[in-house]
């Protein structure tokens, strides 16, 4: 039995001649909140549609709870709930009727609708036509539709789109509760790392259809090693001195040079060394790249 709720093995998908997903090997552990990150057009939604079998993947490349999706489509979908792009709702039906319709299709008791409406804060708007809902309300209804079957695996494609800050916090808390208390697995896509870094336990970063990073959120943090940024009056000489002293240079530009931080004492030694060799040090300081910059760095590499 696989420990992964979702596993893709070298998944490649083309729209005509264009490759939109390339050799993607996702591994989403059960019980995790997997942040699926990437800039717009990176292939996130396409991947989610493949995971839902809306787009047909080549055989033996997509596994849901260890089962190949094409040959176990209905069994896999029974364990999944999804919100893909903008919520799919019937505008001529009320919010409650949209949920009732889903209950009919899934063979769920209609009483579940009230519970879901309350969960996403739409009880007061239950009898309002969904077409008249604001974007945020539609998004909430979409989340309720995804949750109504109590699925083990939730795929949420940019679920906080259109939500106000309170709504974003509510969704964040809901995701944490669903995994912590109910043992669900959630794959949540976003183009903003900051949005999911507080909730995600695992992260996959995709760009141009390729997975650039996959691991726990701590492993992502570890990538962001601290460095010492030094500004001097003579960059070339400073680089030469530091290199000869064994410092590992990670970045340099016209005004500054950055080397890997080891200890505070080492930082002082570097300063002394530069001054003793006639280089004026304007500034020296320890800095750590935040995750957002790290994300930009990773995605700009391909």
């Amino acid at each position: 039995m696989s420990n992964f709720a979702i596993e893709t093995v070298g998944l490649t998908y083309n729209f005509g001649a264009q490759t939109v997903v390339k050799d993607l090997s996702l591994q989403v552990p059960q019980g995790s909140i997997y942040g699926f990150l990437g800039p717009n057009g990176a292939g996130k939604t396409t991947t989610i549609k493949i995971l839902l079998n809306l787009l047909q993947s080549p055989s033996d490349q997509v596994f849901i709870f260890g089962k190949e999706i094409n040959s176990n489509r209905i069994a896999s979908l029974k364990r999944m709930g999804a919100l893909v792009e903008q919520p799919a709702i019937y505008a001529h039906l009320t919010g409650k009727e949209n949920l009732v319709n889903r209950c009919i299709l899934l063979g769920i008791k209609r009483s579940k609708c009230a519970e879901m409406l309350s969960l996403v804060g739409l009880t007061d708007a239950a009898n309002k036509k969904a077409g008249k809902y604001s974007l945020g309300m539609k998004q909430r209804l979409g989340i309720a539709l995804a949750l109504i079957s109590d699925p083990e695996l939730l795929l949420l494609d940019e679920p906080t789109n259109g939500l106000d800050p309170n709504g974003i916090i509510e969704i964040r808390n809901l995701m944490i509760e669903l995994t912590a208390k109910h043992g669900k697995t959630i794959l949540v896509s976003s183009h903003l790392l900051a949005e999911i870094e507080r909730t995600a336990t695992h992260v996959g970063i995709i760009n141009k259809g390729q997975l650039l990073f996959q691991g726990t959120i701590n492993e992502l943090h570890d990538l962001s090693k601290p460095s010492v940024k030094i500004e001097t009056d003579n960059q070339e000489k400073a680089i030469e001195i530091l290199s000869n002293a064994g410092a590992e240079i990670v970045q340099k530009d016209g005004q500054t040079v950055s080397v890997i931080f080891k200890t505070k004492a080492d930082m002082g030694t570097m300063n002394t060394l530069l001054v003793q060799n006639g280089v004026t040090v304007f500034s020296i300081g320890k800095e750590r790249k935040d995750l957002e910059n790290l994300f930009l760095d990773i995605t700009s590499k391909n």
Partner: peptide, 13 residues
């Protein structure tokens, strides 16, 4: 109109 083909086809039916 509601872009609901995708939700219909992602149900276990």
């Amino acid at each position: 109109k509601g872009d609901t083909w995708k939700s219909l086809f992602s149900l276990p039916l």
